[in-house]
Simulated assay, not measured.
Amino acid sequence: MTAPLDVSGQAMEAQPEAVVQGAGGKAIEGRSLGQIAWARLKRDKAAIAGAVVVVLLTLIAIFAERPFGGLIALFGDSPNTPNNDLIDPMTSAPIGAWGGMSLEHPFGLEPVNGRDIFARILSGAQISLLVAFLATVVSVAIGSLLGVVAGFFGGWVDMIISRLMDIFLAFPLLLFAIAIVGAVPDQAFGLKGNALRIAVIVFIIGFFNWPYIARIVRGQTLSLREREFVDAARSLGASRSHIIFREMFPNLVAPILVYATLLIPTNILFEAALSFLGVGVAEPQASWGGMLTRAVDYYQSAPHFMIVPGLAIFITVMAFNLLGDGLRDALDPRAR
């Protein structure tokens, strides 16, 4: 197909305005990196499903009990209310099929004391997510700062921080947590009871898990510090703090965010493991790991007591992992 000819018989060249008008009169708009990542994330149905579950669990944890809400009181008994009249005195198992499941007790009742499992699952979600989120924030804050400092300055600074990472990575974290939490008194640092135990668990998980994210941030910083925009900032006389916090950190948000979403389920499992071993949150406060500990003795007479908190942990960890994988793919600039 030949181009149109003018009066003199020579080919005419279309003007840019004509091309735009011919395309419908709409100007071509570029997309930001955030818009591109969101478009990729929306195509990942598994990641969206994981995000929905994470949002629902977070809302449940926030509004489970007063003062923020009261979902537990709205749907049933409080987590520590016994229902001895619904327990068989001969077997200590809940009366009725499927562990005493009913409209009033949708997940059934605990053996022996008859506490509502649904209410305790909601209350346990608060503990699991609170510990996981706070510990992740501590790990990310320490690891990101030390990782970017080690990668940017290099030399003896990098050597000291790297050896510190190796020491923390070789530390037997689970044994240390069991020893520390088990030796914690009932009151210290202005806290007491489960509040003190939660604070100690958050400190142990957050303070000893930072080397994992620090290694990732250090590797990313080593490649970023040789990029053109860092050289341009140096040539303009920018200070080191300006380069680190204004130039490098915005480019490190994506890997930090992805690793944080993958670290949260690990922290949930760690807290559940401590509660399962009896050194986590103490009774009568509900926790998913503590419920599994008590369920071991009744797995034959009341299997629902083990299945429900186990599924709660499984679904929560799976949702965070799906969301983390989806964010990793969406924020990867090499993905299509």
Results as ranks from 00 to 15, higher is better:
19 V>M: 15
324 G>A: 10
234 R>P: 08
309 P>T: 02
174 L>D: 04
244 I>D: 03
110 E>S: 07
62 I>G: 00
51 A>H: 09
92 S>L: 15
9 G>C: 03
167 I>T: 12
184 V>R: 05
144 S>P: 07
29 E>C: 12
201 I>Q: 07
129 L>F: 00
8 S>E: 13
247 E>R: 08
266 T>L: 14
326 G>F: 07
129 L>T: 05
21 Q>G: 09
234 R>M: 12
314 F>I: 11
295 A>S: 12
129 L>I: 11
334 R>D: 07
298 Y>C: 06
9 G>M: 04
83 N>F: 03
186 D>W: 14
266 T>Y: 11
107 F>H: 05
57 L>K: 07
150 A>T: 09
124 G>F: 05
287 S>I: 01
324 G>E: 04
210 W>V: 06
174 L>A: 08
200 V>M: 04
266 T>H: 10
134 L>N: 07
279 V>W: 00
21 Q>K: 13
191 L>A: 02
173 L>C: 09
57 L>Q: 05
224 L>I: 06
185 P>K: 09
23 A>R: 03
120 R>H: 02
313 I>Y: 04
186 D>H: 14
75 F>I: 12
252 L>A: 07
295 A>H: 11
105 H>I: 10
175 L>C: 05
285 Q>C: 02
154 G>M: 01
25 G>K: 09
221 T>D: 13
305 F>I: 10
22 G>V: 06
113 N>I: 14
110 E>D: 09
48 I>H: 08
267 N>W: 00
296 V>F: 12
180 I>W: 11
73 A>D: 15
213 I>F: 10
324 G>V: 11
148 V>D: 03
332 D>L: 06
124 G>C: 00
169 L>C: 01
79 P>A: 02
135 A>T: 00
212 Y>E: 13
150 A>W: 00
203 F>R: 07
150 A>F: 01
300 Q>C: 07
71 L>G: 05
